[in-house]
Amino acid sequence: MVVDRFGDADADRVFHGLADATRRDIVERVLREPQSVSALARRYAMSFAAVQKHVAVLERAGLVTKQRRGREQLVRGNPDILRTVARLLESYEQIWRYRARAIEDILAEDDTPERT
């Protein structure tokens, strides 16, 4: 199942990026307002290099982009990739809703008394 040319490798990178609480927090912050890597690093009890690595994972996943501004690099959230992921999850939800209805129909058939 592919949504807008969003392949398995793309989905794997995005979900890997979102699998960590710090990375989810970074995405949330930079979706609200672009921030430098330095500003982000001040918010976490970890080294600047560790935050850079988190940002690199998010960038490979397409969840954020970096843009140089003078000596700093601004990190911005990418809402387009989140919309694509939301559509992918919605397609899975439709499959499961269909399956749940099918199971309900089967169970309802079992509940009806047999006529002889």
Rank of each mutant, 00 (worst) to 15 (best):
S91E: 14
A45I: 03
A56P: 00
F6P: 02
R68L: 10
G77D: 08
A41V: 06
K53A: 12
S47V: 03
R97V: 13
I103R: 10
R83T: 09
T112P: 00
Q35D: 06
R29I: 08
A19S: 15
I26H: 00
Y92W: 08
V37D: 01
R5K: 12
D105N: 08
H16Q: 09
R60E: 15
V57E: 10
M46D: 06
E28Q: 11
K53P: 00
R76K: 12
M46N: 02
R13N: 04
S36C: 07
Q73G: 06
Y98R: 15
Q73H: 14
E72G: 05
H54C: 10
A41S: 15
R68W: 01
F15Q: 01
Q67L: 09
R97F: 06
A56F: 04
F6R: 07
E28Y: 10
K66P: 00
D10E: 14
V14I: 13
D4E: 09
R97Y: 04
G62W: 01
E59Q: 13
D4V: 07
A108G: 07
M46S: 13
A19L: 03
V51G: 07
L82Q: 03
Q94M: 12
P34H: 10
L18G: 06
R68H: 06
V85N: 01
Y98C: 04
N78V: 02
H16R: 13
R13C: 00
I95L: 13
D8E: 12
D20C: 04
D8V: 08
L89S: 10
A39D: 15
R87K: 13
G62V: 03
Q35T: 02
I95Q: 11
L74H: 04
V30D: 07
A61D: 04
P34N: 09
E33V: 11
R69N: 08
A61E: 03
R76Q: 12
E59T: 12
R69L: 10
T84A: 03
Q52T: 10
I26V: 15
D111Y: 02
G70P: 07
V30G: 09
L58N: 02
T116P: 13
D110Y: 07
A39M: 05
L58E: 01
E33H: 12
R60P: 00
Q52H: 05
L58Q: 04
A41Y: 05
V37T: 14
